[in-house]
Every structure is written in C-alpha cells, then in structure tokens.
C-alpha cells in the first residue's frame, strides 16, 4: 500500500473519532436543544457529495461502530442506521438530483434526517428482540426532538455549504453563465 494511502486512512480514523467525540461528548452537553444536531450525519452527507460512496460508507461504518460501542442502545442500531441513510442518499443523488446546489444539500439534509430517524426507530425495534431496551414511543417529545434535529441539521448544512464554498469549487458549477453559454 502506498504511503499516501496510509496517511489517508489515519486521517480518516482521526476524523471519525473527532466526529464521535463531538457528537457524543461535546454536543450532548450543549443547551437550547443543540444536542439534537446530528453533526455526524451532516458530515457524512457532505463526504458523500464531495467524494464518493466508498468514503461515505467507510465513515458511516466508523462513526456507527464507535457510537454503538459508547451508547447504551442495542449494538448495531447506529451501524445500520448510518449505512441505510448513506445508501438511500446515494440512490437519491444518483437518480433525482442533477446538481450540487444549495437546495440540493438542504433536500439531502432533510431526507437524511428523516431516513436516519426512521432507521433508528426501526432498528431499535428490530434489536429489542435480542437486547431488551426501553423504546420511546412516537410521542410529542420525540416529535419535538425530531423537529429540532431537522432545523439544526438544515441550518448546519447551510452554514457548512457556504463555508466549503470558500475552499472548494465543487459546489459552484451549478448553472452555465450567459458568457459561457455563448462560447
């Protein structure tokens, strides 16, 4: 394996650990419902859009595995939920989205939040047969938390989109300008 590949793997591992520390340690302590922001999920959306499916799946595997090790949900809930979300997002990207505009990212963040939440609930119920755990019903509290997660994920996606625009031109090639169209 090339030296660059080792570097890439180490960088990815550190990034995965940093994401999980932020999500599980840092964000959980924040006020104003900020703990509902799914930093890991939004990051994976951007990794999928900026690089490729392989990278996004690697990140979802690493983040899911670490979160399963450190959470008291049945083991596998996060692994499966992240993997399912990345798969659905890739399907959406391949079939329905034709560019990487701001609105595409908002739509991806919205879809990812919905799919992830649904996957978490489904896998919790699936794994409750193996590892009995108290499962929250679809009540007002859960819906409120989901609403906050949607808002914060969309806001963070918007901020991240504009921030990345300063460093990369991957998101700028959306429409042909008139001058280019004429040439």
């Amino acid at each position: 394996m090339e030296k660059n590949n080792y570097k890439k793997i180490i960088f990815n591992l550190l990034a995965i650990m940093f994401l999980v520390f932020c999500q599980v340690g840092f964000l959980s302590a924040l006020p104003l419902g900020l703990s509902d922001l799914n930093l890991a999920l939004v990051s994976i959306i951007f990794i999928l859009a900026m690089t490729d499916q392989k990278n996004a799946l690697s990140f979802s595997l690493g983040v899911g595995l670490l979160m399963d090790i450190f959470s008291f949900q049945p083991f596998g809930v996060h692994l499966l939920s992240f993997a399912a979300t990345v798969t659905v997002l890739q399907l959406l990207l391949s079939r329905y989205f034709t560019n990487r505009s701001f609105y595409t990212f908002l739509a991806l963040a919205f879809s990812a939040t919905v799919v992830y939440q649904a996957a978490i609930m489904a896998s919790q119920r699936f794994f409750s047969f193996v590892s009995p755990v108290e499962i929250a019903g679809l009540d007002r509290q859960l819906l409120a938390g989901f609403g906050r997660a949607l808002v914060f994920n969309l806001l963070f996606s918007a901020v991240l989109f504009y921030a990345l625009n300063f460093f990369t031109n991957r998101f700028k090639t959306v429409f042909l300008s008139k001058s280019h169209a004429g040439t």
Binding site: F21, G25, F26, A29, L30, P31
Partner: peptide, 16 residues
C-alpha cells in the same frame, strides 16, 4: 477513548 469523551463533555459543559 473514555478520557477524550470526558474532555469534550467538559468543554461542552463549560459552554453551557
């Protein structure tokens, strides 16, 4: 990794 979680949690706690 436990110590890292404590450090990050402590940082979040300070912000809160």
């Amino acid at each position: 990794l436990n110590p890292f979680f404590s450090v990050f949690y402590s940082a979040g706690g300070k912000l809160r």
